[in-house]
């Protein structure tokens, strides 16, 4: 019996050794990506099934903190890939000099296409104001219509200084109205019930009935419809067009697994990754998988026009737009 046990132990040891010898890929991402409802668990299983490697997702803070974490760690970082940067952070991320070209020329379904040597998109979405059809019969069809709407058509938004959607709205108004942005903000000011730190507070206040609409995504109603069977939520479609957010990943120069990292970057646009995105991250997949979009997504309205600044321009625009926003809302 004893020898049997020893043999079993030796076997187990050999197995464990084998596993340790397996190549390991470390992907830094934002917290929500790795939760049990996020995309990470399924993607990890799908990639490990084809790579014969060990894929480890590391939660490295919320969206903007992710880049900060990599900057703190510098060239000595354990990460091979950083996944989850907002397109508005891409210019700053490129400037760190920590990222390596991915060398791929994939076709994506993101409106306007994508051609960046360092970063690849994995999902995207349009910002939009979400409303409750039972409370608001007719949603405004533009920022100007919102300004002209009855007084009780109010919004709650996120602060561009602390939230990605908040920054997205700032750039949305700038992209739609250019130099007229300050006057639009001034006219919108009475409609803004309040400004919150993050998405949760704003969306909760909207659900509690404090405002008629909340800044979110055109895909938010799909969550209510698919996960909750609630068909009352809809996104107000604006004639000016909707600003697009793209989420991207990049591989680090200092990676000790360049080949494996490159394989993951390519895998990112394949079915095993893309089919997981819609119902976990509630965004559009960057490349629609052959299996198509879930039903609730396919039924969503599509904006007539997509607005987006190229990363460099978005970055250059930010400070001025922020100053205008502060000025208009601080009166």
């Amino acid at each position: 019996m004893k020898t049997m046990n020893l043999a079993a132990a030796a076997f187990a040891f050999a197995l464990a050794g084998g596993a340790a010898a397996q190549e390991k890929l470390v992907v830094y991402t934002y917290d929500s990506f790795v939760t049990e409802w996020g995309p990470a668990p399924k993607i990890e299983a799908n990639f490990e099934a084809v790579c014969a490697c060990d894929l480890e997702f590391v939660a490295a803070g919320d969206g903007a903190a992710l880049l900060g974490r990599v900057q703190l760690e510098g060239a000595g970082t354990e990460a091979d890939i950083v996944l989850g940067l907002d397109s508005n952070l891409v210019a700053a991320a490129a400037e760190t000099g920590l990222f390596a070209p991915h060398g791929l020329t994939p076709e994506t379904d993101a409106p306007g296409g994508w051609a960046d040597p360092l970063f690849l998109p994995y999902d995207w979405g349009w910002f939009a104001f979400v409303y409750d059809k039972t409370r608001l019969a007719e949603a405004p069809s533009s920022f100007e219509a919102l300004i002209e709407a009855p007084e009780d058509v109010t919004i709650v938004i996120q602060d561009p200084r602390s939230s990605s959607p908040g920054l997205g709205l700032l750039l949305w108004v700038k992209a739609a109205y250019g130099d007229r942005a300050p006057e639009i903000w001034e006219a919108l000011a009475p409609r803004i019930v309040t400004v919150t730190k993050g998405w949760w507070e704003a969306y909760s206040l909207f659900l509690e009935g404090e405002a008629m609409m909340a800044l979110s995504y055109t895909t938010s109603p799909a969550y209510h419809s698919i996960a909750e069977g609630d068909e009352t939520k809809a996104a107000a479609m604006f004639d000016e067009g909707h600003y697009m957010q793209v989420e991207v990943a990049g591989m680090l120069k200092g990676t000790d697994q360049p080949e494996l990292a490159a394989r993951f970057m390519a895998f990112m646009l394949e079915e095993g990754f893309q089919s997981v995105i819609p119902e976990t991250n509630w965004m559009y997949p960057a490349k629609t998988p052959p299996s198509g979009l879930p039903e609730g997504f396919a039924a969503l309205p599509v904006p007539a026009k997509t607005l987006a600044f190229p990363p460099e321009e978005a970055r250059a625009m930010r400070e001025e737009a922020l100053a205008e926003w502060l000025e208009a809302l601080s009166q």
Binding site: E36, W200, S204, L207, S220, T280, W282
Partner: peptide, 16 residues
């Protein structure tokens, strides 16, 4: 608390 935020990020506001 982190778990709560995980729920929020997955849009599960009621569970959160």
């Amino acid at each position: 608390p982190l778990y709560v935020y995980g729920l929020v990020s997955a849009h599960r506001l009621e569970a959160a």
